[in-house]
Design a protein around this nucleic acid. Structure first.
Lengths: 335, 335
DNA sequence: GTGAAAGCGCTAACAT
DNA sequence: ATGTTAGCGCTTTCAC
């Protein structure tokens, strides 16, 4: 490995001057700079960021702890976080928790020993307990895509999930629906469900407990099964709200298999606006979540507090979802 | 920050002894160990991995450069790489290239300055040129999910993409198809196309150049448009091979809009087996790529060469794809 | 504008 | 089994 000293010797200066050149500090005479740069090029010198990290106490690395990356929601968030970091010259250390609390704890501990400059945490299922540990980390920490009630001590950038459900409910209610069913992962998505109910309640319509079907995983498979259960009950609903698009895709499949037409016999609305929602059959009406904005705002918040050398304030920033009307929702049939 | 020295003083020993305890070296007397561990707990000491990295020249971090993470193929690969690393106590530094050669170059340079212990690179579109630069990195490097001809100097773990096309072609040929069309991203997916042609050729059937439709991005949108172009031509094919599932999803949509039944009027086969392939309408026949195996084998190869302190041998390891028959493919109609 | 010295927190090699 | 001495490659502080 070629070090700063090698370059210095070659250029006939000291380490310090090389350091100044490398970091672009404007205290080097043009000729010296040229000599040093030549030496750097000839030797193929690359600064050792680990050594710099030890000397400065800053690594230019941000840790990101996320439930999974193999999911259309989180993969976009990760991608956007990485983009923002890259724009600012930072790097991304990625750790996944995979729905395992114990793994989440390990990842948290590991990331904190790493002397990262900041930590971003997405999702709440896995490290409910361990979040408090984050506060003593000594580096800026922020939460994003948090759905349950976040701890009041850390800043959060997330979606107004109650509004997600409310948008879906208002859309369905305005369409004329009076009998709604819900297929949701609970309790994770309880705010989405509460919003839906509030929207219907505002129209004087009750969404009964009996019309609520719970899935344990937000997958098409689970949605498929839950939809079959739903259809077996009497008093078939005229519309169904699925708490994620993946669930909704499974619901569509089940309805198709049962010979039900969407939206003529039954309307379906999902949440997220994953890429394949537009290519579902029929194209899925959904509540789009501002994934990239969440990622960007959370990351920039963190970067700002690194620069400022302060913990970010414990604000909760709630971004607005958007209704995307496609063809899986329509007025209830006359019957 | 509490350092090793603080712990040492508190426990009445030297740094070295603390170091031995922390790293679990079995050269410390039980009483001393207990005293040190107590001091560690009381002080809340966490070893500084940056300092250790500088001292040992090893960071326990592996860099992974990948085109994008917001794609069902790569997101699974990333997740599996992270899993394997975690199993071995390593961490993941993730960088994306996003189809931009210049960004790829930057990421490569950055990762190499980072003193990562190894580098894994997926995908080939972006850093065709810069790969050679990798060899001088001084750390183990491996390529994975490489589709075009890999440089002969680095180890590669990838799929036998010619076989991918061949499996698809044999399936369609055995079904009785004689008029095939191809919708593919070219030249990226040329091996897939070549394999398909070989399979048909083995049955004495030519897949004409005229039946080849190129898309510039492997997306449903692009597949949709290409399918419309294809249908506008005379001599409609009885089957179409899409070089990715995303493209195939767009093709299915276009066929549906044109009132064509799948597979009765036309069969469709994709590549990858992304999660939504099973929930397409109709469920998509596809060639499944062994994403997790690619990731695992590539990562373990890298980890082995780190331990061995050697560059991994420049072998090409070709994993086998698998045909997954669903309902989007069937015999051609009698007409 | 450049150089010399000290130290970031840890490990390694040797001494005791 | 524990202590001592030198660094790892860089930045920082203070002379010159």
């Amino acid at each position: 490995m070629v070090t700063m000293n090698d370059v210095a010797r070659r250029a006939g200066v000291t380490k310090q001057t090389v350091s100044n050149v490398v970091r672009g500090r404007d205290v080097v005479s043009p000729e010296t700079r040229a000599r040093v740069e030549a030496a750097i090029a000839e030797l193929g010198y690359r600064p050792n960021l680990v050594a710099r990290g030890l000397a400065t106490g800053t690594t230019m690395i941000v840790g990101f702890i996320v439930p999974t990356v193999a999911h259309p929601f989180y993969s976009v968030v990760v991608e956007e976080v990485e983009s923002v970091l890259e724009e600012h010259g930072y790097h991304l250390l990625l750790a996944t928790t995979r729905g395992e609390g114990e793994r989440a704890r390990r990842q948290l501990a590991a990331v904190s020993s790493r002397s990262v400059d900041a930590v971003l945490v997405a999702g709440d299922r896995d490290l409910g307990e361990h979040v408090s540990q984050l506060e003593k980390l000594g580096v800026p920490v922020a939460l994003c895509a948090w759905e349950t009630n976040p701890p009041g001590t850390l800043p959060v950038v997330t979606v107004d999930y109650e509004r997600v459900g409310h948008l879906a409910g208002r859309h369905l209610r305005d369409l004329g629906h009076r009998r709604a069913a819900v297929i949701a992962q609970l309790p994770s998505h309880q705010f989405r469900v509460a919003g839906l109910r509030r929207a219907f309640a505002e129209g004087g319509v009750d969404v009964p407990e009996g019309g609520l079907y719970t899935v344990s995983e937000p997958t098409a498979e689970a949605g498929y099964d839950a939809a079959l259960t739903m259809l077996a009950a009497r008093d078939r609903p005229t519309c169904v709200f699925a708490s994620t698009d993946a669930i909704a895709l499974g619901v569509l499949e089940a309805l198709r298999h049962q010979g039900l037409r969407v939206p003529d016999d039954i309307s379906v609305v999902g949440v997220d606006d994953i890429p394949q929602a537009a290519y579902a059959h029929p194209p899925l009406t959904t509540i789009a979540l501002p994934k990239r904005r969440i990622a960007r705002e959370a990351t920039e918040l963190l970067l700002r507090s690194i620069r400022g050398g302060i913990q970010p304030p414990a604000d909760v920033s709630l971004l607005s979802p958007e209704l995307v009307v496609r063809t899986s929702s329509g007025p209830p049939s006359a019957s």
